[in-house]
């Protein structure tokens, strides 16, 4: 097996007194889609913020290409070829396509001190990269990003990462707000990136999406790594179960069992079940 591109060793993260991640060890490999699964607040976004240099781990270490690294800022992470599209963002709605594509890496023309942003070149490259990802409707790089659909924006962000030679692409819920067709397109883009040998870390709440593109799955439950397995090692039901927090489901089953014992084998009526699941004190 090849060297992992990124490796986390027993990483913990706490904000003040709240422990958000505890003892997470993970490997991210080239040409592999790692799906990060877990309930709301499980710590997925926090984990990828550590991978992308936004947060430093409270304890534990990180390795990139076999060498120990310490990302002090997102810039450090990008210099290791890690590109991130954050939840609810990733693009600048009121900037033009060309400008937002090149933020932080603007092509320049002219001589110092009159070096200036090369708008034409930026626009043409941005449009070309988007076309290469199958977004053929976009022909004008001066258009505002805010006027693009959600899928087109994800394509812009992914195209950007690919263009700047990222070897790890981190996507936080890229399909969350998308329709079926747009989501399918984004999944196809993920496969395309994978084929290029890029490692993709994908956060999603959608089991179907995860099962469609995932090679490797990691499930977080309240900040701890509850499961870490490869494609085909678990059934769809097991994954769904884990994503819903596994134990939450187990608890519910236990409660139903207790109910059955107390009520001579009757299963609870729907209304009763509703009360059971919402009233933590239980019967």
């Amino acid at each position: 097996m090849t060297e992992p591109l990124l490796k986390l060793n027993a990483v913990c993260k706490s904000f003040g007194t709240t422990d958000v991640l505890s003892d997470v060890s993970l490997e991210v490999r080239a040409g592999e889609v790692l799906c990060l699964l877990g309930d709301n607040g499980a710590g997925k976004s926090t984990l990828i913020k550590i991978l992308s240099g936004f947060h430093e781990p409270s304890s534990g270490t990180m390795e990139a290409g076999g060498k120990k690294v310490c990302f002090k800022s997102p810039r450090d992470a990008s210099s290791h070829g890690i590109a991130t599209v954050h939840q609810f963002g990733g693009t600048f709605p009121l900037m033009s396509i060309g400008r937002s594509f090149f933020v932080g890496a603007e092509p320049l023309k002219g001589l110092w001190p009159l070096r200036r942003f090369d708008r034409k070149l930026a626009n043409s490259i941005a449009v070309r990269e988007m076309q290469a990802l199958g977004i053929t409707r976009i022909t004008d790089g001066d258009r505002l990003v805010g006027g693009l659909s959600g899928g087109e924006r994800q394509a812009l962000a992914i195209g950007r990462a690919v263009h700047f030679g990222a070897n790890v692409l981190i996507l936080d819920e890229p399909t969350a707000a998308l329709g079926v067709k747009e989501a399918a397109h984004v999944l196809r883009l993920i496969m395309q990136a994978r084929q290029k040998g890029i490692a993709v870390v994908l956060v999603t709440h959608n089991v179907t999406h995860a099962m469609t593109v995932g090679d490797h799955f990691a499930v977080l439950i309240r900040g701890a790594l509850a499961a870490d397995f490869h494609k085909g090692e678990r059934t769809r039901e097991e994954i769904t179960d884990l994503m819903a927090g596994g134990e939450a489901m187990a608890e519910l089953e236990a409660e139903i069992e207790a109910y059955q014992l107390a009520h001579h084998g009757h299963t609870p009526e729907p209304a009763e079940l509703e009360r059971l699941t919402h009233d933590p004190s239980g019967p």
Partner: peptide, 25 residues
Amino acid sequence: HVSRFGNWIFAVGGDTVSARATGIS
């Protein structure tokens, strides 16, 4: 509007988190 610094200003105002992610200070 012409220099690269201007692009950073728009990016910072547009979405600070994404701007940081691109490596801008």
